[in-house]
């Protein structure tokens, strides 16, 4: 028998605290695979701020710090600047990165911090029970947009990679989706490029991962992936938004 796929060693034995069908675990596994394949596990520090993935350090087997809500990129800056030889990742949700932490994110990007940002967007605040997030789609019902998100009252979904792609600091910006095996393979490819950017000391990289939240969307896991394809990807199209010279 030839092994084609195997859960990487960087993924711990600890069962995740995520709801059934939540793609956070897929993102964790991709990161774990790349850390193993690129032999980065031992030099990696992952910054886990507040969100459903707040306990991420139980699930990926690297050094880890817990950041205050939204402050991951600032904390990562402190680690990377003082220990440039370390490999620093932030793992942030859309509430964390695009709402309370948008300033830290933009400025880390503008400074060209040599960190990798993994940005998981599921369109709501999952951990606190499904409130509206900056990425919530227009018309989408959440617990704080009970009549559906309306542009006049709540503004428009925020597209972070598009915003960051127009500033000079970032070297690699991409958006992938976790809705299907095909897109998951693509997501891994993008994240690998992002990781290489840091390995080669080129600068800041960010990969947004379009994810789902079956519990708060009140859908089955399958339905929630279907919703990504039908409703989310038209608003948040996948692809590479900024690929500077030298990105492999």
């Amino acid at each position: 028998m030839k092994t084609l796929y195997k859960v990487p060693g960087a993924v711990t034995d600890c069962p995740t605290t995520y709801c059934p069908g939540c793609p956070h675990g897929v993102a964790h596994r991709i990161i774990g695979e790349l850390l193993d394949e690129m032999q980065l596990t031992r030099k990696t520090v992952i910054v886990w701020p507040v969100g459903c993935s707040v306990f991420g350090y139980y699930f990926i087997d690297t050094d880890a710090v817990e950041a205050a809500h939204g402050r991951a990129c600032a904390m990562a800056t402190g680690i990377k600047r003082t220990h440039p030889e370390s490999f620093v990742i932030t793992y942030q949700g859309d509430g964390d990165l695009a709402s309370i932490g948008i300033a830290e994110t933009i400025h880390a990007a503008a400074r060209g911090e040599r960190i990798c940002v993994i940005y998981v967007n599921n369109g709501n605040y999952g951990m606190t029970g499904g409130q509206m997030a900056p990425t919530t789609l227009l018309g989408q019902v959440t617990t704080t947009s009970p009549y559906g998100r309306e542009a006049h009252a709540n503004g428009f979904p925020l597209k972070v990679p598009e915003m960051l792609a127009v500033i000079d600091g970032p070297v690699y910006i991409a958006r992938a989706s976790l809705d299907s095996p095909k897109h998951i393979i693509q997501a891994k490819k993008f994240i690998k490029k992002a990781f290489k950017v840091q390995v080669n000391d080129l600068g800041f990289s960010l990969v947004e991962l379009i994810s789902s939240c079956p519990t708060n969307w009140k859908m089955t896991p399958e339905e929630s992936l279907e919703r990504i394809r039908k409703q989310v990807l038209p608003v948040f199209p996948i692809g590479e938004l900024k690929v500077d010279e030298g990105v492999a």
Binding site: T3, L4, Y5, K6, V7, V11, P15, T16, Y18, G21, C22, P23, H24, G25, V26, H28, R29, S180, P181, I184, I185
Partner: peptide
């Protein structure tokens, strides 16, 4: 690839 819980350990 789709398993969120690393429950499909090996293929």
């Amino acid at each position: 690839l789709i398993c969120p819980d690393a429950a499909i350990v090996e293929v």
